[in-house]
């Protein structure tokens, strides 16, 4: 499990300089607009928007490639299954395999929406340090309990991942996972080779929980000594400061937000315009529904 983040948050580009709250709102609006796309001919349009934003962010292509690897399996499943099993209109047939038109257009739509949304998401996350992102969410109205929990979880995730890998190594060194020919203890649960194996794994997870729980007690004491929990008077401060913060936004960021929102509205509007212009064949070919 690789837990690296914020690798490219230090780069400099217009997207990096975009004010975090405006960037969050703008890119999320765009992502939802992409999710609304229901016409196949809009797929290249939204992919072009996403990719040109990616180019503007100056993130290296290797970042996108490495991030797309896991979700790519899902994409592969959609691409392999849908065109052959969905729809009636057969475009091309070889033996039992038939390429169907409805499935093909559904596949293009799902894959296109997926790629565009995921790429935009990675632009947002790749150009914003995680702490800044949570601060932006917080100032946009995320409840303080959630913000605190997010930051603490994020902080200790790396720590606990290391603990788990150490414990797994210790388990392996003591012979876990080796072929135990003589071990036939316990009743057989269907689909499971050995009950003791499940027991060991549950003890592993339990130990991880207990370790984290005990660590949390120490962490809480340390935080308490540093004044955690005494913010009830200062919670009103951000509300009164909000207006000055908004007026201090630089014009480029606000324009970026306005641009993203108008792009999203344009995409939505294009989705409702009849494409065919009176040619039924074209309508049938181009629209998904």
């Amino acid at each position: 499990m690789r837990l690296a983040m914020d690798e490219f948050a230090h780069l400099d580009s217009p997207i990096h300089r975009w004010e975090p709250r405006c960037k969050l709102l703008g890119l999320m609006t765009l992502m939802f607009a992409f999710a609304f796309v229901e016409r196949v001919w809009l797929v290249p349009v939204m992919l072009a928007i996403a990719l040109s934003l990616y180019a503007a962010s100056r993130l290296p292509l290797s970042f996108l490639r490495s991030r797309l690897r896991y979700p790519g399996y899902f994409l592969l499943g959609v691409v392999v299954l849908l065109p052959f099993f969905s729809g009636q209109t057969v475009l091309w047939q070889m033996g039992p395999l038939a390429l169907r038109q409805e499935g093909l257009s559904a596949m293009l739509l799902i894959a296109g929406r997926f790629l565009a949304i995921v790429t935009t998401g990675f632009i947002l996350l790749g150009t914003t340090p995680f702490l800044t992102l949570v601060a932006a969410l917080r100032s946009l109205g995320l409840p303080p309990v959630l913000a605190d929990m997010t930051l603490l979880t994020y902080r200790y995730l790396f720590d606990l991942a290391e603990t788990l890998s150490r414990m797994k190594l210790a388990m392996r060194l003591r012979g876990f996972g080796q072929a135990q020919s003589g071990d036939r203890r316990g009743c057989a649960i269907p689909f499971l080779s050995r009950r003791s194996e499940l027991g060991n794994l549950s003890a592993l997870a339990g130990t991880l929980l207990i370790r984290s729980y005990e660590q949390s007690e120490r962490v809480y004491k340390a935080m308490r000594l540093r004044g955690y929990g005494y913010t009830s008077q200062s919670t009103t401060a951000p509300v009164t400061r909000k207006k000055t913060l908004l007026s201090r936004l630089d014009p480029a960021s606000v324009m970026g937000l306005a641009g993203a929102v108008s792009l999203a509205i344009a995409l939505l509007g294009l989705g409702f315009i009849p494409v065919s212009a009176g040619i039924p064949q074209l309508d049938h070919l181009l629209s998904f529904r």
Binding site: M1, V145, D148, M149, L152, T153, Y154, Y156, L157, D159, L160, A161, T163, L164, G177, L192, S193, E197, L198, L201, L204, A205, L208, L209, R211, S212, Y213, Q215, S216, E217, V219, Y220, M223
Partner: peptide, 20 residues
Amino acid sequence: IPKASLLTAAFFIASSIHIP
């Protein structure tokens, strides 16, 4: 809050344990 967050992190990590 710290307890719940550390347990959240632990659950997050524990869900990566694979059962053969």
